[in-house]
Simulated assay, not measured.
Amino acid sequence: MKNIILASKSPRRIEMLERYCKDLKIFSPDTSEVINENDSPQTTVMKLAFEKCFDAYKYCDDKGIIIAADTIVYLNKIMGKPENEEDAYNMLKSLSGNTHSVYTGICIIDNENLIKAADYEKTSVEFNELSDDLIKSYLKTGEYADKAGGYGIQGYGELLVKRIDGCYNNVKGLPLTKLNNLLTKHFSHKLL
């Protein structure tokens, strides 16, 4: 059984993958996560996931299968992580009452056999109409920080969401079914 190395600083991704990989190794990538507004959401998330994965490939001493992911929210434009509370407020205000898309790119590199795979997952998320009071209450939780689109569906942010169409784990930041399919198809490795 090969080592699984997660190239991520995300507590959510670590927690999700630790359920399946008891000896999960963590590498914190040092990438800039620059978003090019001219790129499609699909290209953006796969490019950012590749940068994280490649950083681990270059600098991680452990051998095995490196996994990296990146998530963005898309509604007329790409929304990454908010810069501050005001930015998060503006993101949530624009998402209010609308349906947006959540994209997560996955990149996997086997650093022993030099096999590489990349793909993405897309989920549609419909938000409730959000009052200013609800947005402000949500922002007080601090949960918006470090979350694409300024919310986390796995926490208090679940109260903002009316409906999702697609993979719930994708909205959390790691589409486990897609990941398992990629690992099985390209690396002869299964999560379960």
Score class of each variant (00 low, 15 high):
Glu18Leu: 14
Glu18Ile: 07
Arg19Cys: 14
Arg19Trp: 12
Arg19Met: 15
Tyr20Leu: 12
Cys21Met: 13
Cys21Ile: 15
Lys22Ile: 13
Lys22Phe: 12
Asp23Gln: 13
Asp23Trp: 10
Lys25Phe: 15
Lys25Arg: 15
Phe27Asp: 00
Phe27Cys: 02
Ser28Gln: 14
Pro29His: 01
Pro29Tyr: 02
Asp30Gly: 02
Asp30His: 08
Thr31Pro: 01
Thr31Arg: 02
Thr31Asn: 02
Ser32Arg: 11
Ser32Cys: 10
Glu33Val: 01
Glu33Ala: 05
Val34Trp: 11
Ile35Asp: 03
Asn36Tyr: 13
Glu37Ile: 05
Asn38Lys: 15
Asn38Ala: 12
Asn38Met: 12
Ser40Tyr: 03
Ser40Asn: 05
Ser40Cys: 08
Ser40Gln: 02
Pro41Lys: 04
Val45Lys: 00
Val45Phe: 01
Met46Gln: 04
Met46His: 02
Lys47Arg: 15
Ala49Gln: 07
Phe50Tyr: 15
Glu51Val: 01
Glu51Thr: 01
Lys52Pro: 00
Cys53Ser: 06
Phe54Tyr: 15
Tyr57Met: 11
Lys58Trp: 09
Lys58Cys: 13
Lys58Tyr: 11
Tyr59Ser: 07
Cys60Gly: 03
Asp62Thr: 07
Lys63Thr: 08
Ile65Arg: 05
Ile67Pro: 00
Ala68Arg: 03
Asp70Ala: 09
Thr71Glu: 06
Thr71Met: 06
Thr71Ala: 08
Ile72Ala: 04
Val73Asn: 02
Tyr74Gly: 02
Tyr74Glu: 02
Leu75Ser: 09
Lys77Val: 03
Lys77Leu: 09
Ile78Arg: 03
Met79Trp: 08
Met79Lys: 10
Met79Asp: 08
Gly80Arg: 02
Gly80Ala: 09
Lys81Met: 11
Lys81Arg: 13
Lys81Ser: 09
Pro82Tyr: 06
Glu83Leu: 13
Asn84Ile: 09
Asn84Thr: 06
Glu85Ala: 11
Glu85His: 02
Asp87Arg: 04
Asp87Lys: 06
Ala88Asp: 10
Tyr89Ile: 08
Asn90Ile: 07
Asn90Val: 05
Lys93Asn: 13
Ser94Asn: 14
Ser96Asn: 11
Asn98Val: 00
His100Pro: 06
His100Val: 09
Ser101Val: 02
Ser101Gly: 03
Ser101His: 05
Ser101Arg: 01
Tyr103Asn: 00
Tyr103Lys: 01
Thr104Arg: 03
Gly105Phe: 01
Ile106Val: 07
Ile106Ala: 03
Ile106Gly: 02
Cys107Phe: 04
Ile109Cys: 04
Glu112Arg: 10
Glu112Thr: 12
Asn113Pro: 00
Leu114Met: 12
Leu114Asp: 14
Ile115Glu: 13
Lys116Glu: 12
Lys116Met: 13
Ala118Leu: 08
Asp119Asn: 14
Tyr120Gly: 01
Glu121Lys: 05
Lys122His: 05
Thr123Ser: 10
Ser124Pro: 00
Val125Lys: 00
Val125Gly: 00
Glu126Phe: 03
Glu126Lys: 15
Phe127Ile: 07
Phe127Glu: 07
Glu129Asn: 14
Leu130Trp: 10
Ser131Phe: 09
Ser131Glu: 12
Ser131Val: 12
Ser131His: 08
Asp133Leu: 12
Leu134Met: 13
Leu134Arg: 08
Lys136Asn: 15
Lys136Cys: 11
